[in-house]
Design a protein around this nucleic acid. Structure first.
Length: 432
RNA sequence: GUGGAUGUAGCUCAGUUGGUUAGAGCACCAGGUUGUGGCCCUGGGGGUCGGGGGUUCAAGUCCCCUCAUUCACCCCA
């Protein structure tokens, strides 16, 4: 294999049937999001670098993991490492503050981070995300959390459990940070090397260190420093999520990497992904839009890792590729088969005919690999106004009148199902 | 960015202390059956042994570098 012609490190080629699963998840996500009133938004996969720098100047993601380049005009561009900043930019640029509040947007697409690849982590990955602008109500936080859970559950994951926390607001967080730094600075000698760095650069991160568990156990708790508003907000979020019948648990050590979060942060993990690897994560970011020179607009949102969701689902995702109808031909009838296949497609039926000039034997062998239903064109039956319909699963066949072909069960099965049966709603709990 | 493991055909792998033209199974293509798949039989295509350098009469095998994959840390979806 020529190394310079291999796909870039940390990227993937997604082939059928796996690619159908990604498409299935996209439809699940968008269908469920629509139930919550979220509408899809598309933004470029690259932005001017300033968009991300403005919003995350202290985060690893924009500091060390950016894919940045200059185009021929000298403009510095960055492949988007996350969706929130990009959608917020679009919100400001298109004047969405003039839209009726709240504004609910969602997206599904690739993100780029130059990290060292490992299980569940790629340099290009796909995120489904949702952003809700214009409400500072705890019900907005709850709605977004419920949406994320509903998507995960609709995809087939049972009983996900969210961990939530509040990192306070600009009024209470500085006091907490001070207390935290004081606590850890006094124990600097006992900290792991990573934490000694965190102490300087990102003190909140000290909370979720896996090494210094004993030291952090005694650390000051955010909850003791919340202002009255933050306390009430957090309690209301917890209550609203729980009232919808979802399991929530406060994780006092949960903090998140992007530094635009205010108050609520949350994430959901999964046993198959290992500790600290999130299926989705998000939170409230009331200051983000303003930091992009927009109006002061409160917002909440989340991002969900599609590859991780796929991994957690394993074989449970019941997405199947459409089974086409194979239109085979007897010697001398290739053109008739070609035309019949095209006629069927125009009736909404998925149909394939032989393009390799194969023998009947080879056609059937090929057909059996691809699908379950075949019709054969040619010979006595064709001349008598019939085709031969064959069930490749059963190995049975019979003549069938051409003009009634659409009534055959194999054709019905091959009719392209455009719906998303796997995203049908579950029975709802009683309304109280 | 740090540390470990692994690279032989599309896939899963064999290849003896270094020794001729590098093998198997599955998959793929064709034929056995000029109108019929799955089993079976015959034949075929497909490899610069990840890449480069070195040691040697001789390297898939030993040494060095590099690239990639993978796992963990960091961080995150």
């Amino acid at each position: 294999m020529r190394t310079e012609l291999q796909r870039p490190r940390g990227t993937q080629d997604v082939l059928p049937p796996e690619s159908w699963k990604v498409e299935g998840l996209r439809q699940v996500a968008l269908t469920v999001a629509r139930r919550y009133g979220f509408e899809p938004v598309e933004t470029p996969i690259f932005e001017q670098s300033a968009v991300f720098l403005r919003v995350g100047e202290h985060t690893d993601i924009v500091q060390h993991e950016r894919y940045t380049f200059r185009d021929a005009g000298g403009v510095e561009l960055t492949l988007r490492p996350e969706g929130t900043a990009a959608v917020a930019r679009a919100y400001v640029e298109n004047g969405l503050q003039a839209w009726p509040k709240p504004v609910r947007l969602c997206y599904f697409g690739p993100m780029f981070r130059r990290e060292r690849p490992q299980a569940g982590r790629f340099r290009q990955h796909t995120q489904f995300g949702a952003e809700l602008y214009g409400s500072e109500s705890p019900l907005a936080d709850a709605e977004v959390i419920l949406l994320a859970l509903a998507v995960v559950e609709a995809a087939g994951l049972a009983d996900p459990e969210v961990r939530v926390n509040s990192i306070g607001c600009e009024r209470c967080r500085p006091r907490y940070r001070e207390a935290l730094v004081g606590y850890f600075a006094a124990r600097r000698e006992a900290l792991c090397p990573d934490c000694q760095v965190r102490l300087e650069r990102n003190p909140l991160r000290l909370l979720d260190c896996k090494v210094d568990v004993a030291v952090r156990a005694e650390a000051p708790d955010l909850a003791d420093y919340w202002c009255d508003d933050c306390r009430a907000h957090f309690a209301a979020v917890e209550a609203a999520v729980a009232s919808a019948g979802r399991r929530v648990e406060r994780d006092p050590h949960l903090v998140r990497g992007l530094d635009y979060y205010t108050r609520t942060v949350f994430e959901v993990g999964h046993p198959s992904l290992g500790a600290g690897v999130a299926l989705f994560g998000g939170g409230r970011y009331d200051g983000l839009v303003a930091s992009l020179d927009g109006p002061t607009v409160p917002a909440v949102g989340f991002g969900m890792g599609i590859e991780r969701l796929l991994g957690a689902l394993g074989d449970r995702l019941a997405v199947t590729a459409p089974t086409p109808l194979y239109v085979g031909h007897l010697p001398g009838y290739a053109e008739e088969a070609f035309r019949l296949a095209e006629w069927l497609r125009n009736q909404g039926v998925a149909a394939e005919s032989d393009l390799l000039g194969r023998s009947v034997r080879a056609q059937l062998k090929d057909a059996a690999r691809r699908t379950r239903w075949a019709v054969l064109v040619g010979g006595r039956e064709w001349e008598a106004g019939q085709v031969v319909v064959r069930d490749l699963g059963q190995g049975t066949q019979a003549p069938w009148p051409k003009e009634r072909l659409l009534e055959w069960e194999g054709v019905a099965a091959a009719r392209l199902a455009v719906g998303v049966p796997w995203a049908e709603p579950k029975a709802a709990p009683d309304l109280r």
